[in-house]
Nucleic acid binder design. Structure first.
Lengths: 224, 224
DNA sequence: GAAATAGTGTCTGTTAGACACTATCAG
DNA sequence: CTGATAGTGTCTAACAGACACTATTTC
């Protein structure tokens, strides 16, 4: 007879806010780890798909639909949850700068954005999960266009470069960055300008939709 | 109240045998999908870690210990198993040419190696799982040294090249391949030669153990 | 010496990385 | 005209890809 197991999804929700990469965490109101910060998540419901469960939690936590969501890894060590056998399928989500302002409908529990470089102590095995998510994001940004998910639909090239710099944790050269965007043709200039700030306005761009195959054909995507 | 779920691990076991990339499949002796071929796997036991369960199944199926094993993805669509809610954590394993001969202690069930380019119909959602595993292997071989896990400890450079060609599905240039190995310094020449065959013997080499960080420092690893 | 595979070097086009100045706007 | 950010081109070193002949062994 096969033992049964309780299944949760945990979602590492990233956003770029006020110039830094941040994660949404919630403070636990109940034991175990009462009062500690944790990655948002919850149990998978009866007859519910894993990704569906993740999207539901995401909606409950942030009010946002239609976000980038990707399965990360499944954590199932017997001792990871003091309540018994709980296996967690971890996901990571990327919110665009706009959506990230609303920490709405937050289930009564306290929720807050934390800078990735100033994290609190975390409940369960959530610290390594977060570290792994960041690692995955760092890798993936270099050969896909996931990074664009952290920006609104229209963005300036400088804003895009800031996102890459934040995630990679190092400065990039402005001219090399823009040259790469040009040769890959992944970005489409708009007529609009960003006129905030007392200086020359920046042209706004959009991500040009390309199939992943096309991206691969053009070579590895993003090592600036 | 959280519904509970049954948890399995499935292991996509790859090996290079008689010049092609092959997978180990077992023929199901019971319903559902009785008589169909399936990826080996089984239920996770009480108090057993996920990777532990995968290694146990691997041992039961092949008799082999100490193999490369990596978590692939977790499949949990509600309809994927007609018996009810069964969530499967898929792994993939790489056997070295040697270990792959022993399909020992195979649990009474019929087990066989299948060429990746001539697969039978598969039970459950195992066809996309297998496709995904191959995809992952193809990607990973280009920036890590996982490919070496498909060879015995000592190997000729031609044998190594064949492994890369099989997985990538295209011929590689012998001189470019060897040049890359040289500049990356990932391979160490031995005194021994491979004297099989009625022709000039090939020098044998060993993988030089390098930390993953080192590999990254030297740039992306394997695009020949 | 024939058959079979091992082993070796060069040239060329592309790409990544370093680097500094002019343009345009608000106030 | 000052402050602030946008926007633009060149040179160089490293790397990828194309390509063909000699070396060593067995039988």
């Amino acid at each position: 007879v096969e033992p049964s197991v309780r299944l949760t999804v945990d979602i590492v929700i990233f956003a770029v806010r006020s110039g830094s990469l941040q994660v949404l965490l919630i403070r636990r109101g109940i034991e175990p780890f009462r009062g500690a910060w944790a990655i948002p998540g919850g149990f998978v419901l009866d007859g519910e798909g894993l990704e569906d469960a993740a999207r539901r939690e995401l909606r409950e936590e942030t009010g946002v639909e239609e976000v980038y969501l990707e399965q990360l890894y499944t954590f199932g060590d017997p001792g990871r949850d003091p309540r018994g056998r709980v296996v967690s399928v971890a996901y990571f989500a990327l919110l665009s700068g706009e959506g990230s302002t609303l920490v709405a409908g937050t289930d009564a529990a306290e929720a807050a954005w934390w800078r990735m470089d100033q994290l609190p102590d975390l409940a369960f095995d959530h610290a390594p999960i977060l570290a792994y998510a960041l690692d995955r994001l760092r890798n993936k940004i270099e050969y896909t266009t996931v990074g664009f998910q952290l920006l609104p639909e229209k963005f300036s090239l400088t804003a895009l470069q800031r996102v890459y710099e934040m995630i990679l944790g190092r400065p990039l050269d402005k001219r090399n960055f823009r040259r790469k965007l040009t040769v890959l043709q992944i970005v489409k200039p708009l007529k609009e300008l960003d006129r905030t700030g007392n200086h020359r306005p920046a042209r706004l761009y959009q991500l040009r939709k390309l199939s992943p195959e096309k991206l691969r054909d053009r070579g590895v995507l993003m090592p600036f």
